[in-house]
Design a binder for these strands. Structure first.
Length: 417
RNA sequence: GUGGCUAUGGUGAAGCGGUUAACACAUACGACUGUGACUCGUACAUACGAGGGUUCAAAUCCCUCUAGCCACCCCA
């Protein structure tokens, strides 16, 4: 093969793009219903934006970013996630000055240099939403309800919502050291990875899949028992609002996030159908992020969902449309008439196909069938002379006589639902 | 970054050292003399991921590389 796409970068072919559009349109509809407006930000940002927001020690920043120096000697990076860029724009354009509460959504490609596997690619696509300016747990709950609504609308009931609270800079350090002393006593039972995590990120040992670690951490202290009073009441309010609106969820005190900026509420939509890529959507509150990036001290909360993973879950559901009418012609003499008829019908919104290259009637009919046209019509000398033709309903072969005019044809073949 | 598996036409695949690379689907054209889905006929890999080697002879054995998939790490 001469030239191929870059490893981990995929083409979305027409066969699949219908499904993608369905996902995107559903997200737009649900998000806009909730008062979110779309923001479009660049895919390329200064590297510093990501190292400062996501965190220097995270895997994303340490080994997964597409970072390079451009011709002007700027150190730039293809965005590995969406929130940082959106918040940069939020601060840069002082959107907080327009409105104390802003609700934004975005969609587009993200880039991470990882080894591709099922549901994980180097260029992947996310749809995300962010609320800034609200401390109240009401914002957390609305965002979670919106996420739940999206999955309901898209027709997926499989992914389930899990929530947790990670505390804040007040209470997390204390919990972390409590956990560390718990682990210290059992460090021999931990796997090699977790011995490393014990130092770098002890919370991570809680969601390790190794049997020894699961046993060793079975009685580990829970974050939720070590929240400060502010975080504790915030979390219980979030739960109360979810209960009030009947949103199903479960609490997973072992859920950890990969980005440093999360505080308090964190959550994931989890599926069991994608192997180890169980998270279809994930997010959380990031009360310190905006000020960390040089903006005012404004809280925020948001999520991102993975389009590829949702598309995978949607599976083989059919989203392609069918032509209303296929026009077949007997000979070159009728093609002018057919072409004008097609043009007129297209202008009035009827989806029409015709044969472009003067193939045999047999081929044309086969094509009408293959395209799954709802009606077909054959135009020959007789039809041109009489100005009428038989429109064949492909599903059952019924033929209906009608005049060869847009006004007569459009209502006949147009899908009436 | 680590590990495992796999690489034959548009697709799914047979082939396990010996003349024309099976079969199916898809595609194109045709047969049933102006009407699809059934049936039938014809066409369709100078070629077996790339490069090297062994051999009289390789898609079939060996080596290297590359790619894809899956898993780990991590993550949407």
């Amino acid at each position: 093969m001469a030239l191929t796409a870059v490893k981990g970068f995929n083409d979305i072919l027409p066969e699949e793009s219908g499904r993608w559009q369905h996902i995107e349109q559903t997200a737009r509809r649900v998000f806009e219903l909730n008062g979110f407006g779309e923001i479009r930000v660049p895919v390329l940002e200064k590297t510093e934006l990501f190292s400062r927001s996501i965190g220097d020690g995270t895997d994303i920043v340490e080994k997964e970013m597409y970072t390079f120096t451009d011709k002007g000697e700027n150190n730039v990076t293809l965005r590995p996630e969406g929130t940082a860029g959106v918040m940069r724009a939020f601060i840069e354009h002082k959107l907080y000055a327009l409105d104390p509460v802003s609700k934004l959504y975005y969609m587009g490609p993200m880039f991470r240099y990882e080894r591709p596997q099922k549901g994980r690619y180097r260029q992947f696509h996310q749809i995300g939403a962010e609320i800034t300016g609200v401390n109240d747990p009401l914002a957390d709950a609305q965002l979670l309800n919106m996420l739940t609504a999206f999955f309901r609308e898209i027709g997926l009931d499989e992914p389930t919502l899990q929530i947790n609270s990670l505390g804040c800079p007040e209470c997390r350090p204390a919990y972390r050291s409590t956990l560390r002393s718990f682990l210290e006593a059992r460090i021999d039972q931990l796997c090699d990875d977790c011995k490393r995590r014990f130092v770098s990120n002890p919370l991570r040992t809680l969601d390790c899949k190794a049997q020894g670690c699961i046993e060793a951490t079975a009685g580990a202290p829970s974050v939720l028992d070590h929240l400060c009073s502010g975080c504790d009441s915030h979390f219980s309010s979030v739960r109360r609002y979810l209960d009030l609106s009947g949103t199903p969820y479960s609490i997973n005190a072992r859920m950890v996030r990969g980005l440093d900026y999360y505080t308090r509420t964190t959550f994931e939509m989890v599926t069991g159908l994608l192997g180890s890529q169980s998270a279809v959507a994930a997010g959380g509150r990031y009360d310190g992020l905006i000020s960390q990036l040089g903006g005012p001290s404004i809280p925020g909360i948001g999520f991102a969902m993975g389009l590829e993973r949702i598309a995978l879950l949607l599976g083989a559901k059919e989203f392609s449309s069918q032509p209303d009418l296929f026009i077949a012609t007997m000979g070159a003499g009728e093609r002018d008439v057919a072409f004008c008829l097609m043009d007129g019908l297209l202008k009035s919104g009827v989806r029409v196909e015709m044969d472009y290259e003067g193939k045999s009637l047999k081929s044309q009919m086969r094509r009408a069938d293959k395209l799954n046209a709802r009606y077909s019509v054959v135009i020959g000398e007789n039809e041109v002379a009489s100005g009428r033709a038989a429109f064949k309903r492909m599903a059952d072969g019924l033929q209906i006589d009608a005049a060869l005019t847009v006004d007569a044809i459009a209502p006949l073949v147009r899908k009436t639902v």
